[in-house]
Design a protein around this nucleic acid. Structure first.
Length: 605
RNA sequence: GCCGGCGUAGCACAGUGGUAGUGCAGUCGAUUCGUAAUCGACAGGUCGUCGGUUCAAUCCCGACCGCCGGCUCCA
């Protein structure tokens, strides 16, 4: 599986024009088959194209087949695609006559100084700025993929249109490769694998968007969480636990009730006061910071928590583990002096790579999101925070792009998207600077002169959320976790009942060595046991019969089907233990000296 | 939330206006067997929920719940 899928053959410019032309062919075919359909817009997208139509009913799969067939006719017949500049009036007449209200609306929104062009191909004319291929015959291979509803201009109150998605390539071979990739993505779907492998479930009985972690998924989660805690300990974070609900007043004070209410569940009443399920952990960490008097000597204070939060997400947006209503953020809040922001961010950047590289996420894109509409805080603070983020990125030598207006309401942020084995990108890490909450809660520390000074706060999550991260991992590894992460690391398979005592001894040895063991001592043929272990994607199988019991060996077989032959069991155990250790790479020393917890807040006196 | 599709045993799926099947999994029995499925028997479902139409509903209609594909949004 290579990761260069984002670079399709042929130049991008070419492909965009080709797909845009394919969209026009789609519209032409629809108009031929369904003359009453009105056309919306039809752009090329990242992976193909779509076209929106107003039609009195949704398009069925059978419709799509017919439309696709008609498109092929148009393509094989060939027709020059001709650019034709028109005056505003001519264009208006044209689309009034052809009865295309959406085109007229677009026409009205084109700036008065812009040139108006239409493109003709055969009997079909579309308002469009181009560019296009010179002839429909040059569209190599097309395929319609799906249809769905979409709002005109994406606004919910606008009329709802029928959108048809498709893709197009220069050659059939490229199209086939793309379709294979789609199939590969289907095969990797974490919802499918999660069910097959018994990793997690969501059930009607407990409501949408709430995840039940089954034992096999939970084992993997524990490994992830243990690594996470160990690394955070080493980087000078202090682990805390906070409640799942808090008084509504707390959320009012934090500003969430004003700015985040749309994502919060309704309050619940307890003995006359209102409580709210937490959508974030930060107010609790603020309270913990505030709980004792802080000196500049204590800073930075780094509070970490795998904190489960609950957010109201609209039902239609829920998706497996990637979008849920209850999820666990790998959260931490760093309280520091304004002059330390850049260096603290730098340390977080180091930790991000240390945390994610063991999982194979080494390739990332970094975005710096700046001040959005409707945000809080002063311009100076926004400038200071944004500057500190940039400085940290530059110091770390990390290339980044600016994402204008995509910051959070309380501050700018760095977002990191990582590339998986298929070259897909996933938003994982986020680092956000916040001047607002320290203000709202009036938190301070004492500087060297004894003055109360306001610290700033950095919110950060490396994995994003444990649920989403796990879902991404399932897709990344196709359910076959590496040895160090797998729910069961070694499967012990007996040939016959008389080998059970020997296998039982080995099971204890493995368990004592901290290795996760799966035992299959059933009265089944070895082929059946191997098959099941293989389907569970257990990395290593140890098969034991008369010879092995006699010689104190095991016959090792990997899940890729390779049988490694007999090995003394002690050797096999050592080699597994070694592979686990290096996979966890807990011995990494990089950047750790910066992270000792040196003060004794709450422990002494 | 909106548009469209869907909801039959633990899982994957058939099927019908007259109260349902297949495969795998499960249970029991036999078998003790060397690198991806041993054989046999049994058991398992108020056909997502609630209401309506009908002599009769799992099937038709409605609402709700949930899932899927999009829109929108996002950890």
């Amino acid at each position: 599986m290579n990761s260069d899928k984002r670079e399709p053959v042929g130049s991008h410019g070419d492909l965009v024009a080709l797909r845009h032309s394919a969209a026009h062919v789609l519209a032409q075919a629809v108009k031929r088959l369904f003359p009453s359909a009105q056309v919306g817009i039809g752009p090329a997208t990242e992976e193909g194209f779509y076209y929106d139509f107003r039609f009195d009913r949704p398009f069925s799969p059978q419709d799509l087949e017919k439309i696709e067939e008609e498109m092929r006719k148009i393509i094989s017949a060939g027709a020059p695609i001709v650019r034709r500049p028109l005056s505003r009036e001519q264009a208006r007449d044209l689309f009034e006559k052809s009865g295309e209200p959406f085109k007229l609306e677009i026409l009205h929104s084109i700036p008065s100084d812009a040139e108006i062009t239409v493109y003709d191909q055969g009997e079909f004319t579309d308002l469009c700025r181009g560019p296009h291929l010179p002839d429909t015959a040059m569209i190599g291979a097309v395929k319609l993929l799906s249809s769905s509803g979409a709002y005109w201009k994406g606004i919910e109150t606008n009329p709802s249109l029928q959108r048809i998605y498709g893709t197009a390539f220069h050659t059939q071979k490229e199209l086939d490769a793309y379709l294979e990739r789609l199939e590969e993505i289907r095969q990797r779907d974490h919802r499918k694998i999660g069910k097959e492998q018994g990793f997690f479930r969501t059930l009607d009985e407990n409501g949408a968007g709430m995840v039940l972690w089954l034992p096999r998924g939970a084992k993997v989660r524990r490994v992830i969480e243990e690594i996470w805690k160990t690394r955070h300990d080493r980087h000078g974070y202090q682990y805390v636990y906070t409640p799942h609900i808090a008084r509504l007043d707390l959320w009012k004070q934090s500003g969430h009730w004003d700015f985040y209410r749309d994502s919060m569940f309704s309050p619940m009443e307890i003995e006359g006061s209102e409580f709210e399920l937490k959508p974030m952990n930060c107010p609790f960490h603020i309270l913990i910071f505030k709980e004792s008097v802080r000196s500049y000597r204590d800073l930075p204070v780094r509070l970490a928590e795998l904190g489960t939060v609950y957010r109201y997400e609209r039902s239609g947006t829920l998706h497996g583990l990637l979008r849920v209503r209850g999820f666990t953020q790998d959260d931490a809040h760093i309280f520091c002096r304004p002059e330390d922001i850049a260096s603290e961010i730098g340390k977080v950047l180091t930790l991000v790579d240390e945390m994610l590289s063991p999982f194979g996420f080494t390739n990332r894109s970094v975005y710096l999101s700046t001040r959005p509409e409707g945000s809080v805080g002063s311009d100076e603070n926004w400038a200071l925070a944004t500057g500190a983020l940039e400085e940290a990125l530059k110091t770390a030598g990390i290339p980044y792009e600016i994402d204008p207006g995509e910051g959070v309401f309380y501050g700018p942020k760095i977002d990191m998207k990582f590339h998986d084995v298929l070259g897909r990108t996933w938003q994982l890490s986020t680092i956000q600077v916040d001047f607002n909450l320290p203000e709202k809660f009036d938190i301070t520390y004492r500087d060297s002169s004894g003055n109360a000074v306001r610290p700033i706060m950095i919110h950060r999550a490396l994995l994003g959320s444990v649920e989403r991260f796990f879902g991404i991992l399932v897709e990344h590894f196709k359910g076959a976790f590496p040895l160090w992460l797998a729910p069961e690391q070694v499967a012990l398979l007996t040939i016959a009942d008389r080998h059970i005592p020997y296998a039982t001894t080995l099971a204890s040895e493995l368990q004592n060595a901290g290795i996760r063991v799966f035992t299959d001592f059933r009265n089944e043929k070895i082929g059946a046991k191997i098959r099941e272990a293989q389907m569970m994607k257990i990395p290593q199988m140890w098969i034991m019969g008369d010879r092995e019991a006699e010689e104190q060996t095991v016959s090792v077989r990997n899940r890729d089907g390779q049988a490694g032959g007999a090995l003394p069991w002690k050797e096999a155990l050592t080699s597994v233990a070694e592979e686990i250790r290096s996979g966890l790479s807990l011995n990494t020393a990089s950047g750790l000296e910066s992270g000792r917890t040196t003060h004794s807040k709450g422990v002494s006196d």
